[in-house]
Simulated assay, not measured.
Amino acid sequence: MTTLVGGLQNTATLAWRNLVQIKHNPMELMDLSIQPIMFLLLFTYVFGGQMSGSTHAYLQYALAGIIVQNGIFATLNTAVGLNSDLQKGVFDRLKSLPIARSAPLAGRVLADLVKQVWSLVLMLCLGMVLGFRPDSVFGVLGALALMIVFALALSWMNVLIGMVASSPEKVQMMAFVVMFPLTFSSSAFVSVSSMPGWLQAWVKVNPVTALVDAMRALLNGGAVAAPVTHTLLWAAALAVVFFPLALRAYQRR
């Protein structure tokens, strides 16, 4: 029976296996660099003038939402990567090894979170180059930590999708059906008050809205207790529900 320490070591080893691939395939990191830059520039300079009257004002408002959008969509890479490994038979070999049952999944999630840190830091740095001014260093660090915690919890939902989908293409189709409504029907890009009443009811209970509001309060300054608490509760709920389901689906493959 694998001990807790042994399971953590297995997870770290498999996470390193995924990270070291960047050395042989630098384009994997380029994907996490180019897309965030494109989203940030497009939202700022295409929508900024219309939404807030100036690109600078919109950047100050929307950067938190753009970071959240990028972070949520980045978790899709976990599902696609796991499903690809399943198709290639990688997990057949891993299941035959005396390692923790959750290590192959947790290792992939951990590696993708490390990659996501790079993407988040890149977006923040570019945002500041474009004129964004955070309220404090502690707020920036808090926002990064909160995004990673939520991404970790949400990753298990995508792990489940990766386990049950029959191909990487099906993974993307299934995940986008969930990701798009969650992300765009939130306070990420526009004020909730500008939406129809029936939509506001959903937006206010959307977990992405809680995350965006918390990130915006941490980065721009404001009341953080309520949105951060709501975000952490949502993260805990996602992890509690989807971690065992993902592990069960993995064991049945």
Rank of each mutant, 00 (worst) to 15 (best):
M1N: 10
T2C: 10
Q9E: 14
A12W: 07
R17Q: 14
L19P: 07
I22R: 03
N25I: 12
N25C: 12
P26G: 08
M27D: 14
M30K: 14
M30Q: 11
I37R: 03
I37N: 04
M38Q: 11
M38C: 13
F39Q: 05
F43A: 05
T44R: 05
V46C: 09
F47E: 00
F47Q: 01
G48D: 02
G49Y: 02
M51K: 07
M51L: 15
S52L: 04
T55I: 08
H56R: 12
A57T: 06
A62V: 06
A62P: 04
A64W: 04
G65Y: 00
G65E: 00
I66Q: 05
I66S: 01
I67E: 01
N70G: 09
I72A: 09
T75Q: 12
N77K: 08
A79C: 14
V80N: 05
N83D: 10
K88C: 15
D92T: 13
L94M: 15
L94V: 06
L97I: 06
R101W: 11
R101N: 13
P104F: 04
L105V: 03
G107Q: 01
R108V: 12
R108H: 11
A111D: 03
D112M: 06
D112K: 07
V114T: 02
V117R: 03
S119P: 01
L122E: 15
M123Q: 12
L126A: 11
G127M: 00
G127H: 06
M128Q: 08
G131M: 10
S136W: 00
S136Q: 00
F138I: 09
G139T: 10
A143I: 01
L144M: 14
M147T: 09
I148D: 06
V149N: 01
A151L: 03
L152R: 04
S155D: 04
M157Q: 03
M157R: 02
N158F: 15
N158Y: 12
I161G: 02
M163A: 01
V164I: 12
A165G: 10
S167F: 10
K170H: 12
K170Y: 13
V171L: 13
Q172P: 09
M174F: 07
M174G: 05
A175M: 02
M179A: 11
M179F: 11
P181C: 10
P181G: 02
S186L: 00
S187P: 01
S187M: 03
V190H: 00
V190A: 03
S191V: 00
M195W: 03
P196T: 07
K204L: 02
V205W: 08
A210Y: 06
A210W: 00
L211V: 09
L211Q: 02
D213A: 15
R216K: 09
R216H: 04
N220K: 14
G222Y: 15
A223Q: 14
V224W: 07
A225K: 13
P227E: 06
V228F: 04
T231A: 02
L232S: 08
L232K: 05
A235W: 01
A239C: 11
V241E: 07
F243G: 06
F243H: 08
A246T: 01
A246C: 04
L247N: 09
A249E: 01
Q251G: 12
